[in-house]
Every structure is written in structure tokens, then in C-alpha cells.
Design a protein around this nucleic acid. Structure first.
Lengths: 193, 193
DNA sequence: GCATCATTTGTACGTACGTACGATCCAGGG
DNA sequence: CCCTGGATCGTACGTACGTACAAATGATGC
């Protein structure tokens, strides 16, 4: 393993354990076993390395979520919503480190241009992919408004539940409860309470 | 207006414009017109002031969301879901500053104990209140599992759409589209695609 | 008008930061 | 064998940080 890879791994560790801005170049060097000056040599600056680490972890999280949803969808059509929510909600507490890292990345969106651009593009693809998975259609055909809105809603649910899992993991609903709540919500659309 | 209040206002400005950790004590002094040393006198430390500012803005955001949902619910029962989502989705881009601040607060949850505690409690109350508003019931009676799950789902939608409004405001669905997507999602719960 | 106490100001101290730069190491090729 | 270029290392520079503290200021009660 090259010192370059060590540095990325160390930066990820620091990102989770100390947060984006509290992490110093010396922290990364210590966590990675690499030399302080290697940061500049390999990445140009500490911030460039931290951005890379944050974006990679954000990507890894997206990958894990996609896998969870995919595996739930593979469990067959009956009660698919309940199953997908079940697996998602059960998985989130296990992904705490990745979610912490993703939160750090979100917090930099407004202040680091390369993070903003990459994350915006990643969120677009995530919504497309989620819509395709949930609707069971080809990702390329997910251009219709309905499909795009579905992607947005599922994306919002994932991110929102992830935030809640960070704040209050014990209060997360079960998949069945969440599915019921969604049905209640949707059912209220045509009439009274 | 006391220097103490000026400092809080300056800290909020910096929180939005520079982010939590990039803000220095001197930034706050400059933004508030107050003296550098007053931070220590009034708040003990720069971090204490930043935490206070972040929590206050997080609160203000919650208040705005509650108002939006409340006003939507007041527009009468027919198509309530569509209306509520419409107002929410239209309001988010206008709340960008508060959402940026809230994001900064979320990012500190893992690393600042007082932020974590306050935000956890705030999220509990927010979910309770959202459930009560959406279900049209007394907040005190929102203890049932179904109500709690509904609060979680609505909370997740709010936070998730807020994040999306930060990353990609132009891709937010309309309320009607989101309502359709929710119905599609909920409708898929019993059978195939 | 003076004493008192909260507030505001000016400043300086110690520290820790990011980064630059020259020295050193170490393969692989001539 | 030495030469060469990438990688690693040691270090030091300049800066900017948070905070402490004494002096100055101003309002309040007597």
C-alpha cells in the first residue's frame, strides 16, 4: 500500500472521528503513518486531500444504499415497499460512519466548489438510480416527470432517515410502520383527515 | 442592541457565509462590530457562541417549516397532501440561509455534545409536531406508533428535500409531482410494479 | 459627585497551523 | 557502477488562531 493510499485512508478516519475542519494535516499524517510533507506532495494541499476523502466516502455510502435497495427489490414484488424500507431502516444504524462522513461532505457543499459540483452530479445520478430501482424500470427511461419525482422522494427519505439515524437512532420506525405512514399520508391526498 | 446580541447576529452571519469551523473569532468580531474580547466575556469561548448561533438558526428553521405546514393544513382538507408539499417545496429555496446553517449544525452533532443533545430533543419535538399537524390530531395524542412513524416520515421528507434544495434546487419536484410519487410508492406496497 | 460593578477595549502571549524546501533514500536503466 | 527521477523525510518559516488580563468606560444606586 503506497503512502498515497495510506493518506486517503487516514483522512477518511479523521473525517469520521474529528470532522472535516477540525482535522489538521498533522492529524492525517499521524492517522495514516505517512509523513506530514507527503500530503503536499501527493495532493497539493490538505484541503484537496480532505475533499477527495469526503467525496469517496459519500460515494461509498451511495453504493451501500443502492445495494440495500437493490437487494430488497430482488426479494420479489409482494410488499416490496415494506421490505425496502425495512432493509433501509435496519441498515442505516450500521452505516453511521459513512453517514457522518456524508454529513461532513454536505456541510462543505456551500463552501468548496469541487465538492458542490461532484455532489450535485452524484445526487442526480442517485435519484435516477433510485427511481429506476424502485419503479423497476430501465434507468435510461427514468426521464419522465413521475419517475424523476419518485427519485426525489426516495432520495429525500433516504437522506432524511439517515439524518434521523444520526440524531436519534432508537426512534427510527420499522419498515412496516414507515410503510403504513406512507400509505396514510398518500391516502389523505383526496379527502379529509 | 447590546454587544451580546450583535455577536450572536454576527456569528449567524458567519455561520452562513463561512461555515462553522472556518469562522474565526476575529471574523465574528468584524461581522458584528463588537470587540474580539467580548466573545470570551459574554459566551466563554468562540465555540460556545457558534454553538448557540447554530442552535438558534436550527430552531428558526424548524419554526419556519412548522409555519409552512400549518398554513398548508389550514387551506382545508381537499388535496391537503399536494398543498402541503407544494408550499414546502416552494418555501425551501427561499430558506437557503437557514438550511445552510442547519446543515452546519447537523455536521457538528457528532462532535459537540451540547449540539447533539439539543438537536436530538428538537428533532423529537419536530416529529411530534409534524405528525400532529399532518394527522390533524392533538400533539399530546401523537404517541401511537402510527403517529410517531408518520412524524418520522414527514421529518425525513422535509430534511431530505431541504438537502436536495441545497444541492440542486432546480430539480426539486412540484408538490403535485411529489404527491403523485408518494401515492405511487404507497400503492406499490401490496403487489407488483 | 462618588463608589460600584458590569461591560467594553487594547493588546500580547503561547500555540498550532499549512506549507515550502532542501536533504535523503531507493529502484531501475544505461 | 553510477546516474536519475520519484518518493519520503526533517525541519523551519510565517501566520493566524483562541484566549487571558489589565486598563478604560459607562451606567446605576446612594
Amino acid at each position: 500500500m503506497s503512502q498515497r493510499d495510506d493518506l486517503i485512508a487516514g483522512a477518511k478516519k479523521c473525517l469520521v472521528e474529528k470532522g472535516y475542519s477540525r482535522t489538521t494535516a498533522r492529524d492525517i499524517a499521524a492517522a495514516s503513518g505517512a509523513h506530514l510533507a507527503s500530503i503536499g506532495y501527493h495532493f497539493g494541499s490538505k484541503d484537496a486531500l480532505m475533499n477527495l476523502a469526503a467525496l469517496q466516502m459519500q460515494d461509498e455510502w451511495g453504493e451501500m444504499i443502492a445495494e440495500v435497495v437493490r437487494s430488497a427489490e430482488a426479494d420479489g414484488p409482494p410488499h416490496r415497499l415494506r421490505i425496502a424500507l425495512d432493509e433501509l431502516l435496519a441498515a442505516l444504524p450500521r452505516q453511521r460512519e459513512l453517514i457522518v462522513a456524508a454529513t461532513q461532505a454536505y456541510a462543505q457543499v456551500e463552501f468548496a466548489d469541487d465538492i458542490r459540483g461532484t455532489m450535485t452530479e452524484a445526487s442526480r445520478e442517485a435519484r435516477r438510480e433510485l427511481a429506476a430501482l424502485v419503479l423497476g424500470i430501465d434507468p435510461a427511461r427514468a426521464g419522465a416527470d413521475t419517475a424523476r419525482a419518485t427519485g426525489s422522494v426516495v432520495y429525500a427519505l433516504v437522506v432524511g432517515f439517515a439524518v434521523q439515524s444520526l440524531l436519534d437512532p432508537d426512534s427510527l420506525p420499522t419498515g412496516a410502520q414507515a410503510a403504513d405512514a406512507l400509505r396514510t399520508l398518500a391516502g389523505r391526498s383526496g379527502g379529509g383527515a
